[in-house]
Design a binder for these strands. Sequence first.
DNA 1: TTGAAAGCGCTAACAC
DNA 2: GTGTTAGCGCTTTCAA
Lengths: 336, 336
Amino acid sequence: MPVATIKDIAKLLRVSAATVSRALRDSHEISAPTKEKVRNAARQLNYFPNPYASSLRKGRSKTIAVVLPEVADSFFSLAINGIEAIAKEKGYHVLIYLTHESMEREVEILNEFKSGRVDGILISVSKETNCSQHITNTMEMGLPIVFFDRKLPDVNAAKVITDDYESSYIATSHLIKKGCTNIHFITISRELYMAQKREEGYLAALLDNGLFPSKEKIVICNDTDEHNQRKIKKLFTGKLPPDGIIAAVEKIIPLVYLVTNKMGIKIPDAVKVIGFTNLETAKILNPSLTTIVQPAFQMGKTAATLLFKGIEKKNYDLSSDRLVLPSILIERESTQ
Amino acid sequence: MPVATIKDIAKLLRVSAATVSRALRDSHEISAPTKEKVRNAARQLNYFPNPYASSLRKGRSKTIAVVLPEVADSFFSLAINGIEAIAKEKGYHVLIYLTHESMEREVEILNEFKSGRVDGILISVSKETNCSQHITNTMEMGLPIVFFDRKLPDVNAAKVITDDYESSYIATSHLIKKGCTNIHFITISRELYMAQKREEGYLAALLDNGLFPSKEKIVICNDTDEHNQRKIKKLFTGKLPPDGIIAAVEKIIPLVYLVTNKMGIKIPDAVKVIGFTNLETAKILNPSLTTIVQPAFQMGKTAATLLFKGIEKKNYDLSSDRLVLPSILIERESTQ
DNA sequence: TTGAAAGCGCTAACAC
DNA sequence: GTGTTAGCGCTTTCAA
């Protein structure tokens, strides 16, 4: 059975299409009996409102876009959950786009949105993204945008982030408190704003505690798994092996565990490790991993809530909203 | 700068809207110079085609829906990646819906699709789903549907699955080969078709190898974390503790590792463990976990590819397609 | 090769 | 409380 249209209902009931439309949307200018009749006819005729006709007419799509670098990552998975929860509540639909960390792809995607396909955008920018043209362009078209997690510092838009500087400072201080004096910071990129902030927090904590930072202690693992493992291995074969490691990104954690395990280096005796991750598995690693966890679900929810404020009140200025949700340190065996 | 419409371009160029439309879609009935002029004007006027106007007119949305139980799970995350890859290739957009394992929610979502919002559906059904009314209803409206991973056995639609029976049979045989004689099967639900098949594979492997199945060896952990842990602990305090464990679902793995760790039970010496998961972290667990991994990304891609066949050739009968992608066993320390 | 006109399904302004 | 009318932006006959 094909779908019926408003006209079909109108014809059956010998009323106008406008009346049907109003009745279906429960308008106060329609009498109760008419509403009843319309609703029955709708059911009977297998009516489902065509969302695109409605979007075209109203100029709103009831759809938001979520633009992510990737989704095979515990943070973004959880964030999607939070976003979906709020969208559902609001009766909105969620389009998903993956940039695979490519700025080019990100630009293409954002460009698409100028068409009116979505009423608002949640975005976590790619690693490569170093220019904000595409974002500001889209904002100028009147589309509300909320950054979450990975933002562009120079764009004047709403942001829901965590305190990367702060949490990295805390992570580093934690290692220092546990007696580490040669703490290495392992990351996958220096372009990423988030990674920069974590690096700064790390450096600040060192300095504040009378320890001296050095270039060799900041290791960038942006190569193949094999190369990265070799890089980490080299740390431990040097004359001053680290006694503390900060795995600044989830992906670094397996590397550190694998290498130390292979080399017979004991965590936390020989080296203490702390990692940034939301993975549940942190607690079943051996030794269990002390982590900094981001409030991923909450961030998704908060970002979506903010976005809907921007969508619903069109004069609402999102640009000054900047919510910082704290990450928390969960101490486990790897830093005991 | 607001978006321009086809009319704006037409006015500027003093041609008809039809010509502009045709030129933009690179129709062969338009001369090269006209096309050139139109394209330039479009750029100049900041034109972006309104997708909803187009959808309304053409009756196609260039959008597909992905309906998932949840997304904080390595399998579904990877599957989304595969789906997105194909959708992008085809110029389609991807709407995401989460059922949170609720059949009621699933029905609501499927119902929405009768409106024409999407051209096709990829679905992995919820644990609760025991009736196929909502699926068949939607199919009857002419919407192509492809199941992936979690299907309904009695629905005549395309399915992309993995060989749960087979892979569980292999997992069990592997444990038997390693000398286990008291293998327990730990799962989170018996309703789930996938879980049933895995159970059957487990049982068949036992029987084929002269081992006797028993009810006590099938443990269902569908409670709180705490209760589940207690349940597993009880296995080991009984008079015949398991010497082999199959963690039939990703979520079971942390439980098994935590409990054995707390109780000082050595894997793989006292008990060998094999788990169903796609998580990268399996290899950095201690001991590293032997796993059955599903080809998640590939399944997403395959399901999407199939769906687009159904969408593009509207006479193409999807219902007989049933692709089984093999899962693979990766042997690690936990079963050595 | 181009234009005129109709219409996809819905809604909103304006009448009555 | 209900009907009439127009139009959202695009595509597609049909005619020229």
